[in-house]
Every structure is written in C-alpha cells, then in structure tokens.
Write a protein that binds this DNA or RNA. Sequence first.
DNA 1: GAGCTGCCTTGACCTAGATCAAGCACTAAT
DNA 2: ATTAGTGCTTGATCTAGGTCAAGGCAGCTC
Lengths: 222, 222
Amino acid sequence: MEVLLRGAPLFNSFTDADLAPISAASRLVSLKLGTLLFRERDPSQHFFLVIKGSMRLYRLTPEGKEKVIEIISQGQTFAEAVALLNKPYPVYASALEPTELIAIPSQVLRDQVLVNQELAFKMLASLSLRIHGFLNDIHTLSLATAQQKVAGYLLAFLEQSEDEQTIRLPATKAMIASRLGLQPETFSRVLSKMKEQGVIQEDKNQILILSSSALKQLRDTA
Amino acid sequence: MEVLLRGAPLFNSFTDADLAPISAASRLVSLKLGTLLFRERDPSQHFFLVIKGSMRLYRLTPEGKEKVIEIISQGQTFAEAVALLNKPYPVYASALEPTELIAIPSQVLRDQVLVNQELAFKMLASLSLRIHGFLNDIHTLSLATAQQKVAGYLLAFLEQSEDEQTIRLPATKAMIASRLGLQPETFSRVLSKMKEQGVIQEDKNQILILSSSALKQLRDTA
DNA sequence: GAGCTGCCTTGACCTAGATCAAGCACTAAT
DNA sequence: ATTAGTGCTTGATCTAGGTCAAGGCAGCTC
C-alpha cells in the first residue's frame, strides 16, 4: 500500500513514518466499469487516489443531462479539498473503466494535515494546480470554436509527454466531447476535417499527430 | 491597516500578534479606473485584498479579445495561491472602478503559512471555495442557454444577501456579459425579455427581482 | 456466423446567439 | 448649448454547432 500511495505526487516525498498512519487507515477499492462511487451532495467520508483506470467526475443539469467536469487518471487524487473541509461532494463520480482506487478517510487527512506541515503545503500546491486547470477550461469553454477546443485538447497531451507524437484517448469520444463542451457529432466532424487536412491520423483509438505546428495554428486561429 | 486586513475572511479570526508581521510588510495601493495591476506571466510578488472598489481578472485570446474570468469585490483576496507557490500570475488584473487594495508581499505569506497553522487551513478553505465557484462556472458556461446563465447569475445574488430583492450590478453590463460568456447584445436582449415577462424590473443600474420563483423556473428550464 | 449492443460517423436541417450597423441616453468637457 | 464619449439597446443578417435520423462497424454471446 505504501508503494501505491507514494506513486501520487501528493505523497511522493513522504517518509515511511509520515505515510504509515495514512496507509493503515486506507483501503483498496475496485470498481467495475460504470460503477457510481459517490453522488453530488453525499457527505465526503473519503478522498481518493486512482491506482489504475480512470474516473469521471460530472454533474447533472436540471433536465438530467450529464456534463463531465474532469477525467481523473492514474496517479491523480480527487475530492481532497472537500474531504479536508468536511463538505459534501460537489460532483458525481463514476468509473470510466474497471478502476482501482485507494480510499483514504477524510478524518485521517484532517489529522495528518495538522501534524505534517509539508502535507498542507502539498495540498495547497495541488489545489492551486487544479485552479489553473479550471482557468484554462473556462477560458476555452467560453471563447473557442470546436476546432480550437479539439486542437487545444490534443496539444495538451503532447506537452506533458514530450516528443511522443501518438495519443491514446483516455475515454470514449463521447466523454471527451462532453469535457470539451461539444456534441459527439461535432467532435467527430472536427476530427474528420483534421484528418482530411492531413494534420492528424487515426488508427483504432490511437491518434497520430502529423504536424503539431499545424495543430497550433488551428488552436490559435479564430 | 490591521482593521482593514481583518475585514477579509482570510484574516478575520487572527490575533493581533498573528496579524502584526503581515500588516507591517503590506502597503496600501490606490488604482484609478482601468489601471492595469499586473499582467499574465508577471512574477507574483504580492497578493491582494480589495478594500474598496473592484477588480477584473481576465485573459486574452490569441486574437486579443478579453475574457473576464472573475470579478473581485470588496473584502475578497486574489492571487493568494500563486503568491504562495511563487508562480507567475495566470491572468491580467485591472481596476473596474477607482479601487483600493492592500498588497501583501508573497514572501510574507510564505513565511506566515509556515508559522501559523491556521493560516494554511484558511488558505485551503479559500481555495476550495474558489474551486467550487469554478465548477459552477464550467457547468453553466458549457450547457446553459443565455437565459439560464442570466437567471442563474441574478439568483446567485439573492442567495448571498438573503431576502434582498434588489441587486446592484458589480460592473458594466458588458463586463458581466463577458463573465457569463455572452455578447453584450445578447445580455441586453435577455434582460429585455425578462422585463417584458414581468420577472424583473430595472431602474438605473439597480435590478429589482419581481418573482424569484419565475427566475428559478427560467434557470432550470431548457 | 447470426444477431446484439455500443460506439462512432455522416447527412440534412434548424435554431440560438454572434456579428454588423444604427441610433439613443446620459455625462463631462469646452 | 454643443460636442464628444461611453454604455446600452434594437434591428437585420449570418453561421457554428446542435439536433434528429439513418447507417456502419467492431466485438460480444449463443
């Protein structure tokens, strides 16, 4: 368990002594595809670290449509903030694929933050990072065309994995479309056009970027 | 200065002893309407508390259009997270009206967080709150009609100021439209229609809610 | 290998809201 | 009083992307 915990950025610099009480209180959870982990407004008894697979965090509109807010992949944590502050979950969470999580009781987090100064700092850093992500999302959601959104989304992958030119989408296309604030049809059409223009190529659910500069062009042009 | 500082939620429970070093290092800043306080990517040497007036935080698109991300009013702080983590500012900030701020050096914040446990907690709480706000924004930006956005925006005021039925808009209509991801024209048309339907009434830049239930209806209907 | 089932694509249409273009109301300066 | 500036409204178009509907294409199970 310690090994798994240390896989997360939140915990990677911790000593065994720091980690022991957290590890002792946590437990491993396995979810089948589609399993609902918690609902919006549920009390937050745990926060979670994704060991394997991925989770989708979403909300429901009054009419019952789903809007995907975040897709959480391996190594990332979620619901830390609400757990710490003892607030109800602000979103629904369900498994996008068969997924393994570590569930860490909120109380343990609260206790540890008081004891371990570094943990508080790390939490602040992690929240701050998340806020930056949201700023970007807000920015693109509100004034980008479909093409810009898709180009930006694909480029985000290249940035983190350096000179890899091939991308495996982390969820179904419909999910990604929702994340981007698009209809699945529109997402499909945009990808088609990019293929047509020779900017990308698709094989199975792998996407190959033929020209990242052309893609940047598309992202930055109205 | 101490008095002003304690006006902010971030500091309201602090003892004089806690506050003294912060107060000593901070200084008061007055901005004329439209003054640019910092740019995106500037190093974050201070974070800020709004004493009087209001600030707009925004970004620029590649084509140079502005997108308002947040409007910060009296009593609120901004740029705490980046100051703490010593990252560059992620947005532009300029004064929406003649505005007074307290500028608190980032270094002081970093020092104090290490010393004062409660401050770290408060910061976590404040960031978490901000994240919740962003979740809402993302939600509405991506799948609400213009009418839903405006109704939701107005209702947000009623929620915080209880049974006040009259709202003074915190910025020009064009700014608010941008915050909501709308064109000024569209914002204006939506308000007109609401007046036509007898849901609201407008006088100067005061908005009177005639029927908050009708407004809720509008917010929750596609 | 026949038939499901779930994803994805493609086409035809339609509508919300952006854009373009005047004009109006109020304020501030000359 | 006249002009000019700024924010707001209103009307007339245009268009990106949403919606509806019809297949196509795996990968399953039986």
